[in-house]
Amino acid sequence: MTMTESLVDFFRMGGYAFYVWWSYVVVTVVLALNFVLPMLRHRRVRRDLAQELRFADRCDEP
């Protein structure tokens, strides 16, 4: 069996490619979102809080 043949065989998953690969795609997407969204949220929270702080400081000045 050549390299390409065994690769094609691997992706065919014995005829179950649709079910197997969609499972793995959905898992990858959901886990990636779970990982990325808190990162973005962290950045946003820090930016917002810093802005609030600057605003409060300005208000404190006479």
Binding site: M13, G14, G15, Y16, Y19, V20, S23, Y24, V27
Partner: peptide
């Protein structure tokens, strides 16, 4: 067959 590989996720 190969379908059982879903088990790993």
């Amino acid at each position: 067959g190969e379908s059982y590989r879903i088990i790993f996720v």
